[in-house]
Amino acid sequence: MPTYTIDGITFDLARTYLDVSGVEWVWSGRWNGAGEPLMKTTSGFLPLPDVYWWHGPLIAVPEPVTGEQIRAVLSADFLASQAAGYVEPLEVWAARALGGAA
């Protein structure tokens, strides 16, 4: 994971960033002569410090949440709710809501 630090802020160059006007910036995989990462957008390339100072603050685009992560969170919440007695067993619900048919 390549990173670059400006003013004490470390940027993960594998991430996509949005500037204040909503333009996306991604690392091109290249460095300029000063050792700065070249960021690209549809209109061209700029070194990351220039993007940061002229177009910042930069906001990392959130990474997508996977189905596995969602299931893990929901399962943990459900199991905790069931253990605390907030969720009734299927049989009890079926008896109450469906007249016993599960």
Results as ranks from 00 to 15, higher is better:
1 M>L: 10
1 M>F: 07
1 M>V: 10
1 M>K: 11
2 P>W: 03
5 T>D: 08
5 T>G: 07
5 T>E: 15
5 T>F: 06
6 I>L: 13
7 D>Q: 12
8 G>Q: 08
10 T>F: 05
10 T>P: 02
11 F>I: 00
11 F>K: 03
13 L>R: 06
14 A>H: 01
16 T>Y: 02
17 Y>V: 00
18 L>V: 00
18 L>A: 04
18 L>K: 12
19 D>S: 01
19 D>Y: 08
19 D>E: 05
20 V>S: 10
20 V>K: 13
21 S>A: 14
22 G>F: 05
22 G>S: 04
23 V>T: 15
24 E>F: 01
25 W>S: 02
25 W>A: 02
27 W>T: 00
27 W>I: 02
31 W>F: 12
31 W>A: 01
32 N>G: 03
34 A>P: 00
35 G>T: 07
35 G>M: 03
36 E>L: 03
39 M>H: 03
40 K>V: 12
40 K>E: 15
40 K>F: 03
41 T>R: 12
41 T>S: 15
44 G>P: 07
44 G>R: 05
46 L>W: 11
46 L>R: 13
47 P>F: 07
48 L>G: 01
50 D>E: 12
51 V>H: 07
51 V>Q: 05
52 Y>V: 06
54 W>A: 14
54 W>H: 13
56 G>A: 01
56 G>S: 04
57 P>L: 03
57 P>G: 04
58 L>E: 07
59 I>M: 02
59 I>K: 10
59 I>D: 03
60 A>K: 02
64 P>V: 08
65 V>N: 06
65 V>W: 06
66 T>D: 00
66 T>P: 04
66 T>V: 02
67 G>K: 08
67 G>F: 07
67 G>S: 11
68 E>W: 02
68 E>C: 03
69 Q>G: 05
69 Q>D: 10
70 I>D: 08
70 I>K: 09
70 I>F: 04
71 R>N: 10
72 A>M: 06
72 A>S: 11
72 A>D: 13
73 V>R: 14
73 V>A: 13
74 L>Y: 10
74 L>W: 05
75 S>A: 13
75 S>G: 11
76 A>W: 02
76 A>Q: 12
76 A>E: 13
77 D>T: 04
77 D>A: 15
80 A>P: 00
82 Q>H: 13
82 Q>C: 02
83 A>H: 08
83 A>D: 13
84 A>N: 10
84 A>V: 04
86 Y>C: 04
87 V>I: 15
88 E>V: 14
89 P>N: 10
91 E>V: 14
91 E>I: 14
91 E>Y: 09
94 A>R: 09
94 A>G: 11
94 A>S: 15
95 A>M: 09
96 R>Q: 12
98 L>G: 03
100 G>Q: 04
